[in-house]
């Protein structure tokens, strides 16, 4: 594959899965600038790994693996990336309208907040669950057994439900 083709193909894949990048950045970073940096870091790592992509897995599985690995490691970095030759002023992803549907606004905000409060690995598991990935696919991405996925998801869901119940009382 020549370079322009490879680049076009890569950008098409990222464009088709841009929501994944946004949701992961939102779940793992509170600060807007950090989110921008994280999205940039994920795109860099995806691009560097693009040649190693195996069609055995769906693009979304490949993106989730790399994006979650980067996001989990990212928060432990000492400071923002300094090695970028020419830091970009704009983000690769932009929300043109930040408002949410009125009937669900409050609950979505709380769900996002509760997810962001989870531990790193639980957060990854919950994101994949909400994306309606099969337990087998979640097991492949996280690297644990299917039964372990089931047990852990039940536990996290129970904790989230309890938080929502506390909200109502």
């Amino acid at each position: 594959m020549n370079s322009p083709d490879k680049s076009d193909n890569f950008l098409a894949v990222i464009q088709a899965h841009k929501g994944i990048l946004y949701k992961i950045a939102h779940a793992y970073c509170k600060d807007t600038e950090d989110r921008k940096d994280l999205v940039q870091e994920i795109i860099v790592q995806l691009w560097k790994s693009f040649d190693k992509y195996s069609p055995t897995y769906k693009y979304s599985t490949w993106i989730y693996r790399i994006a979650l690995n980067v996001a989990i490691s990212f928060y432990r970095r000492e400071s923002r990336r300094k090695s970028v030759d020419s830091p970009l002023s704009d983000s690769a992803l932009n929300m043109t309208d930040h408002s949410l549907p009125h009937d669900t606004t409050e609950n979505i905000v709380f769900l996002q907040q509760f997810i962001s409060e989870l531990k790193e690995l639980d957060k990854a598991l919950m994101l994949l669950y909400l994306e309606e990935k099969s337990y087998q696919e979640i097991a492949d991405i996280i690297g644990i057994s299917v039964s372990n996925v089931s047990t852990k998801i039940s536990r996290i869901k129970a904790a989230l439900k309890q938080k929502f119940t506390h909200l109502k009382t």
Binding site: S7, L11, G19, V44, W47, S86, L88, D90, E131, E132
Partner: peptide, 27 residues
């Protein structure tokens, strides 16, 4: 919970824009 997430997803689908030039620059 899944319904809420889907509503969030739909919103992203509608309003999240991808800056292709910026992503190309990153590569």
């Amino acid at each position: 919970m899944i319904h809420l997430w889907k509503a969030y997803d739909k919103r992203l689908e509608e309003y999240l824009s991808f800056n292709r030039q910026n992503a190309a620059d990153i590569t």
